[in-house]
Amino acid sequence: MNNRNRGKNTGDDTLFGTGKQIDKLKSAVQDMQYLLSRDYAEKASSELVGNRYRLKTRQIQSVRGASASNAQIQNRKSKQLEVSELENTTIYLDGFNVLILLESLLSEAYIFQGLDGCFRDLSEVHGTYKRVNQTFSAIELIAKFYQNSKVQKIVWIFDKPVSNSGRIKQTILDFATENNFNWEVDLEFNPDKFLVENAEIVVSSDAWILDHCKNWFNLIQYVMDEEKLAVNLIKMF
């Protein structure tokens, strides 16, 4: 294994590590909620808010991820399932979304809880996925959830065009075979559309998926609570 992780970027402690900055971000999210609820476009809203509070690029990114309109929040909350409702079901994971978020969380990067209750990070995959020191630990956390929740089957969906998606698919399949888990891993050209059209229950923090899916489960919240993980968490509300 290499020495890579998905921890903080240089300067993140300055952007997110003080009460003054966090208060500013919370105010920005409130303003974004107001604008989005009145049908302002997300890009225009984030530009207005970013200018008003003089936010840096990564701060704007965190605010956009945490924000939603009143209608979006209500819609997402109405489709959220409890762990007690998952027994004997099939769960579809938005593979890179879930895996990278867990890797970031375990790497002590800043994690942001949005108005919809979901958690998001600031990591991005620019066409290539690279394993990090925390990858296997992240997969093990999914395994604990799988066993404790008595889910019948987990289907991981990864972006086929992303380089190394085939490698992480094989890594997960090998792990599932070794442990006799009922896991499936598929590569899709348009995973977001696939998940919305084919999954009864989705695990993702992607806003578009949450808006259009049938049902979803907040796996990151579950893992944090069950494992009592120490997290650099910022609640953006």
Results as ranks from 00 to 15, higher is better:
Ile201Leu: 07
Lys144Asp: 14
Val151Thr: 15
Asn215Thr: 13
Leu115Pro: 11
Thr135Arg: 08
Met1Arg: 12
Gln59Pro: 05
Asn190Leu: 02
Gln30Tyr: 07
Ser37Pro: 06
Leu229His: 02
Ile100Thr: 15
Ser46Pro: 00
Ile209Gln: 12
Ala199Leu: 06
Gly19Leu: 04
Tyr40Phe: 14
Tyr34Pro: 00
Ser205Ala: 06
Glu47Gln: 12
Pro191Lys: 02
His126Asp: 14
Asp206Arg: 02
Phe175Arg: 00
Lys150Phe: 09
Lys8Thr: 08
Leu102His: 06
Ser37Leu: 02
Gln72Asn: 14
Gln72Tyr: 07
Cys213His: 05
Thr90Cys: 13
Phe16Thr: 11
Ala66His: 07
Ile201Thr: 15
Asn148Arg: 11
Ser37His: 02
Trp156Ala: 04
Gln74His: 14
Lys79His: 14
Leu15Arg: 10
Gly7Phe: 01
Ala71Asn: 13
Leu106His: 05
Met1Phe: 15
Asn218Gly: 07
Ile154Thr: 06
Phe136Asn: 09
Val196Thr: 14
Glu178Gln: 08
Ile234Cys: 10
Leu35Asp: 01
Gln61Cys: 05
Gly127Lys: 06
Trp156Ile: 04
Leu210Cys: 10
Ser37Lys: 04
Lys8Gly: 12
Lys130Arg: 15
Leu187Asp: 03
Glu82Phe: 11
Asn88Thr: 12
Val151Gln: 08
Thr90Trp: 07
Gln61Asn: 12
Ala71Glu: 15
Lys24Glu: 05
Ala138Cys: 05
Ile22Trp: 04
Glu42Leu: 14
Trp208Asp: 07
Gln33Val: 13
Arg6Leu: 11
Asn5Ser: 15
Gly117Val: 04
Val185Gly: 01
Ile142Glu: 03
Asp121Ala: 07
Glu82Lys: 15
Thr177Glu: 13
Ser123Leu: 12
Val162Arg: 00
Ser78Gly: 13
Cys118Pro: 04
Arg54Met: 03
Asp39Ser: 11
Gln33Leu: 09
Leu187Gly: 00
Val202Arg: 05
Ile234Thr: 12
Ile234Met: 07
Leu115Met: 13
Leu101Asp: 09
Val125Ala: 06
Thr14Asn: 12
Leu15Val: 00
Asp225Tyr: 05
Asp13Pro: 10
Ser62Val: 08
Gln113Ile: 10
Glu184Asp: 07
Phe16Glu: 03
Ile172Ser: 03
Ser62Leu: 03
Pro161Glu: 05
Gln33Arg: 13
Asp121Trp: 02
His212Ser: 14
Thr57Ser: 11
Ser84Met: 12
Met32Asn: 00
Leu81His: 08
Ser163Ala: 10
Ser204Trp: 01
Leu219Ala: 06
Lys79Asn: 11
Gly11Asn: 06
Gln74Arg: 15
Tyr34Ile: 12
Leu210Pro: 11
Asn3Pro: 00
Ala28Glu: 04
Val155Ile: 14
Thr18Phe: 04
Arg76Cys: 08
Leu86Phe: 08
His212Leu: 11
Ser163Cys: 01
Met236Phe: 00
Asn215Gln: 15
